[in-house]
């Protein structure tokens, strides 16, 4: 049986897989990292987004073997060991950017990649366009966009702390 060696959230693992095993199956079923969700399994909804070597990808549309040797970050790898949330996670909480929460892991992972790729900051329109690959089944997009707009200020060092959400 083929083997995959990859580093997930800083921890290196070697796992037996089939040729057809998807990265998301490896993460959820072999490594028990179930924060990465499978919504549609057809590359559309983005609930499965993780970072592979720093790029956001849909983990349902990459073979585990294609990720051999790579550095993977999932939603579980964002908070610090002491529990301090990543600024994007903090912003999603502050701005109530989730309703049922199913799309949230993928939204957060996509949003972080988006902010990192736009060091000069994004307008609301650019954030909305950048989230094209992530669907929220609750249609809760407004607060997601507000959270990302606030988080980018902290991530780029333009704000010391998160602007509080309006009452």
């Amino acid at each position: 049986m083929p083997q995959v060696t990859l580093t997930v959230n800083g921890k290196t693992s070697t796992v037996d897989v089939e040729g057809r095993t998807l990265l998301v199956e490896l993460l959820r079923e072999k490594l028990r990292l179930t924060g990465t969700h499978v919504g549609c399994d057809t590359s559309q909804c983005g609930a499965c987004v993780v970072h592979v070597d720093g790029e956001s990808v849909k983990a349902c549309t990459i073979l585990a073997l294609q990720a051999n040797g790579s550095q993977v970050t999932t939603i579980e790898g964002l908070a610090k060991p002491d529990g301090t949330l990543h600024p994007m996670q903090e912003a999603f909480r502050e701005y109530h950017a989730l309703q049922c929460g199913f799309c949230t892991p993928g939204m957060v992972m996509s949003a972080i990649d988006l902010v990192q790729k736009h060091p000069d900051g994004m307008s609301e329109k650019e954030i909305r366009e950048g989230l094209e690959g992530n669907l929220c089944r609750c249609t809760g997009y407004h607060n997601i966009v507000k959270a990302i707009a606030a988080a980018q200020e902290v991530m780029h060092g333009r704000a010391q702390s998160l602007a509080p959400a309006a009452e």
Binding site: S43, G46, V49, E55, S56, V57, K58, T61, I62, S110, D113, L114, G130, E132, G133, N134
Partner: peptide, 9 residues
């Protein structure tokens, strides 16, 4: 083309 994640692959 597609979306950000599709363009990354």
């Amino acid at each position: 083309i597609g979306d950000t994640q599709v363009r990354n692959r």
